[in-house]
């Protein structure tokens, strides 16, 4: 039995705005085992991004505990959290968050710049490889403003892969992609997952969920469904079934 890489218990996140309090997460508990491919679904405003930000150590819960790989996040200091984000987690933002006026390759290199174990040659190589994996080998030196929305999203995906993370947290990583490209990305994720990388994938699209091993559904800050998927589809197969591109 593989170990639990993520374990949250009674996790709450409240936002106070003036004298109004938004309960974005109302005390949720679950755990994710190493090597799982989980999709998180739910309607807009149900708390998916809020939860993912906490899992990515980008935000702190109001109450409850979060253990990553057996360590309570609360007990870690800011530098330790930065190191975890840098070396263990690949995070894909819903809004990409690319550096403006900075080429695709430099955007992808960014996490490695903060890892002094990686030399500048290796950094460049890994960035090129990551961009090739998402099909942007031809767009290395384009800046975000010279890329389409979907291409920007793929740069963000490449950036999350470049540090060889043990866990990928993706917030609507295929939200801006056509079916073919999103299936390509899903097959990439499935491949990475086969290599043992744990993936947590927020999505709106039910067909994307069929590629994962488990689905958690949120509603108004609560988990309303959490089920194992016994019939995992292969994204590569589905891709092959798609009608050939019409010209």
């Amino acid at each position: 039995m593989s170990k639990e890489i993520i374990k949250i218990e009674n996790l709450k996140r409240e936002f106070t705005m003036g004298n109004e309090t938004v309960h974005a997460l109302k005390g949720i508990s679950y755990s994710i085992k190493e090597g799982e491919f989980v999709t998180i679904m739910g309607s807009s405003g149900s708390g998916k991004s809020t939860m993912l930000n906490i899992l990515g150590c980008l935000d702190q819960p109001t109450s409850g505990t979060y253990e990553i790989d057996g360590v309570r996040v609360k007990d870690l200091n800011r530098n330790q959290l930065a190191t975890i984000r840098n070396e263990k987690i690949g995070f894909i933002f819903q809004s990409y968050n690319l550096l403006a006026r900075t080429s695709a390759i430099e955007n992808v290199e960014l996490p490695l710049l903060y890892n002094s174990k990686v030399s500048s040659e290796e950094r460049r190589e890994r960035a090129i490889k990551a961009l090739e994996m998402v099909g942007l080998g031809e767009r290395l030196h384009h800046t975000p403003s010279q890329l389409s929305g979907g291409q920007q999203q793929r740069v963000a995906i490449a950036r999350s892969l470049v540090n060889n993370p043990v866990m990928i947290l993706a917030d609507e990583a295929t939200g801006n992609l056509d079916t073919r490209t999103s299936y390509e990305i899903m097959s990439l994720f499935q491949e990475l997952n086969k290599k043992g990388i744990t993936i947590t994938f927020v999505t709106h699209e039910p067909d994307i969920a069929t590629f994962s091993s488990r689905t958690i559904v949120l509603k108004d800050g609560d988990i309303i469904q959490d089920y194992q998927n016994h019939n995992i589809l292969s994204a590569a197969d589905e891709l092959a079934k798609l009608p050939k591109q019409d010209h």
Partner: peptide, 9 residues
């Protein structure tokens, strides 16, 4: 963003 990808304070 720099902190999110692992930049320390």
């Amino acid at each position: 963003l720099r902190m999110a990808v692992g930049g320390k304070g």
